[in-house]
Design a protein around this nucleic acid. Structure first.
Length: 596
RNA sequence: GGCUCCUUAGCUCAACUGAAUAGAGCAUCUGACUACGGAUCAGAAGGUUGCAGGUUUGAAUCCUGCAGGAGUCACCA
């Protein structure tokens, strides 16, 4: 890659000319802004002090050196302290030829023998269906997995299902009371939605009970505790923990409904896992760790028997790890599951895709793991993503402002269908093909919309306005892809172009050069995106590529090109772009249609 | 109240470790249909990067203060 050659050459120049020692990797090359001539730019200000010359002189001397050193560098120009290298067309043309059929562009080989990176995402509760927040989580988790794989990492995807606890008992209880034996089959409802319905039902009746107690003069806080439904739910939880058969049977039955519902949603979203953990199996873990911590003196026991970790020296509070009755809390479990997961996979790194509301929790988790002597603690990474907000603020289940995942997807599919019909295309496609297309477009729009935003930032989602299919969107890129495929198909079929033959063009125009340069930079983008766990970089980069392609395509009638050598080159370029788009979209988890 | 994060065009978002005139899309306006795929393209307009200081040759980016917003500070998960 010319990038590395330039770095090396510049670092050598700095050394030979001024005796400045810098590693090639530390030389920062940026893409030259389009209003200037050149391809890559080095800012020389950092070196002028040591070189004891003016910025212009340093830039000129460096430029001279590199120009002589590398034949790919055709010329250079200097503006103030900016040294712009102009790479020869020959280099770009040769590069374009070499990647015309490269369907691995941007991807590295996965080393399946390497210690895996274990990534946890999704982590749903089994008392209600998935919503918009889960969608961001799922898409990010999947996409980051793809991104790391594309960078050669051996990735294992896991899900930790929160399948027990008081909230689960609430829906079970409400179903027993008010359900009349309703099942997914009898009601035609998706299992997770059915269970969610009874969770809401519980809340409704629970609130009525509180209201009634308050009207009888009971203090509100007291009423919340005394409400018969709550007491019964707590008793149910206790019976669950004791292994009571009727409770366990019901629990398994209702969770089964939820799982088949989740499976369907996951399938529609196109995500999957290598391993699923259930909290009912892991919630007792971590107690041995606490014991170990006590022996090590890392933790301490209070008079009432509860166990704590003192983090005040790290600028944090004290953290409870075992209740006075000896039962564990969330943190205890998480310590246990971290160790379990590390051992299950022989993991090199643990990644948790969890909302930023848990930043504090993971900060504490890492510190405690470290104090317990696990040197892999600093390889625990909390991929903390921002909330998804609606135009009127945060989603609140109580206010009914939750955007349901299944509803959203089917709504998007409907929109996609309307858009297609409006455009009056695809008359030749079968009903089945059309449905598949609507699905691909709907998910492309949704996924791209969410993934193009920096994961760490809070984002706004407006379901009213639905989602655009024009501009910086998934369907725009999908359309570009389908268009390119069409050109390539016709070039091969009608014009008899052979993508494996060599083309010998001598020059290219600005738009062609831009597209080639973007393809050229794809590796560094993937690497950079993987380093910062940010699919957003891939998304925005892919959009840029599609946009540049469209711009180039608009004024270059490829299939009408009279010069056969040039036509061959253009078609090869098209093919390379389509392969690159496909790979990048695959990292995002977005399918691309051959026709649309 | 303590701690953490955020604030960029009317709106939704970019800007890799500090660098040249802060970029896209949507919306608005103007052009291009003999369409190799117009779900496109070309262009205009839109900015004191919340405010005030500081560091630097250079700040949206780093530091301090202030304002506004979010999260968190449970013997919940």
């Amino acid at each position: 890659m010319i990038y590395n050659k330039l770095q090396l050459s510049v670092s050598q120049a700095l050394n030979k000319l001024y005796g400045i020692e810098v590693t090639p990797e530390s030389i920062i090359l940026q893409k030259t802004k389009k209003e200037f001539n050149g391809d890559y730019t080095v800012v020389v200000f950092p070196y002028v002090k040591q070189a004891r010359k003016s910025p212009e002189m340093v830039a000129n001397e460096l430029g001279q050196f590199v120009n002589n050193d590398l034949h790919e560098v055709e010329n250079y120009n200097v503006i103030k302290g900016f040294l712009n290298f102009e790479i020869s067309d020959r280099y770009w043309i040769d590069y374009a030829n070499s990647i015309a059929n490269d369907d691995c562009l941007g991807l590295k080989q996965v080393d399946s023998t390497a210690a895996p990176t274990v990534i946890e995402y999704s982590s749903p509760n089994t008392n209600k269906p998935l919503h918009l927040g889960h969608i961001r989580n799922n898409l990010l988790g999947w996409s980051v997995s793809q991104l790391l794989s594309a960078n050669g990492r051996n990735v294992k995807k896991v899900n930790l299902v929160n399948d027990r606890g008081i909230h689960i008992c609430k829906s079970m209880l409400a179903w027993l009371r008010y359900g009349n034996g309703e099942t997914p089959e009898s009601s035609g409802m998706k299992g997770d939605h059915l269970v969610g319905k009874y969770y809401v039902e519980f809340d409704k009746h629970y609130k009525e009970e509180i209201k009634e107690l308050v009207s009888k003069g009971v203090d509100e806080e007291q009423a919340k505790k005394e409400a018969p439904l709550m007491i019964e739910a707590q008793q149910m939880l206790k019976r669950w923990e004791e292994g009571d058969k009727t409770v366990r049977d019901l629990w398994e039955r209702m969770n089964g409904w939820v799982y088949s519902g989740f499976d369907e949603t996951y399938r529609k979203m196109g995500i999957s896992f290598d391993k699923i953990y259930y909290e009912s199996n892991t919630y007792l873990l971590g107690k041995e760790l606490v014991q170990k911590g006590l022996e090590m003196g890392v933790l301490y026991r209070k008079e009432d028997g509860s166990v704590w970790c003192d983090l005040t020296d790290a600028g944090l509070d004290q953290k409870l790890l075992l209740r006075k009755d000896g039962t564990s809390v969330y943190m205890t479990q998480d310590l246990g599951t971290a160790l379990l997961r590390h051992n299950d996979f022989g993991a090199d790194q643990l990644i948790y895709v969890v909302g930023n509301e848990q930043d504090y929790h993971f900060q504490v988790l890492k510190i405690i793991l470290g104090r317990l002597g696990y040197e892999w603690a600093d390889k625990v990474y909390h991929l903390s993503y921002g909330m998804v907000e609606l135009p009127n603020g945060k989603m609140k289940s109580r206010e009914g402002t939750v955007v349901d995942a299944d509803d959203l997807i089917s709504q998007m599919e409907k929109t996609a269908e309307e858009m297609c019909i409006e455009r009056g295309k695809n008359a030749d496609m079968s009903e089945e093909e059309l449905h598949n297309l609507y699905h691909i477009l709907a998910l492309g729009a949704l996924k791209y919309f969410i993934l193009k935003v920096d994961p760490t930032k809070t984002m706004l989602f407006n379901p009213e306005e639905s989602i655009d299919f024009n501009g910086n969107t998934g369907p725009f890129i999908q359309y570009t892809y389908a268009r390119i495929r069409s050109i390539v198909r016709r070039a091969i079929g009608e014009k008899g172009i052979d993508l494996n033959s060599n083309s010998f063009v001598d020059n290219i125009n600005d738009k062609e050069r831009l597209v080639i340069k973007q393809l050229h930079d794809i590796y560094s983008v993937v690497e950079q995106a993987a380093d910062s766990y940010s699919p957003a970089m891939i998304a925005n980069y892919t959009y840029d590529l599609a946009k540049s392609f469209n711009s180039f395509y608009q004024d270059t009638p490829i299939l009408k090109e009279s010069n056969p050598i040039r036509m061959l080159f253009l078609v090869k370029l098209c093919n390379a772009v389509s392969l690159a788009i496909k790979n990048m979209m695959n990292i995002l988890g977005i399918d691309v249609p051959e026709r649309m």
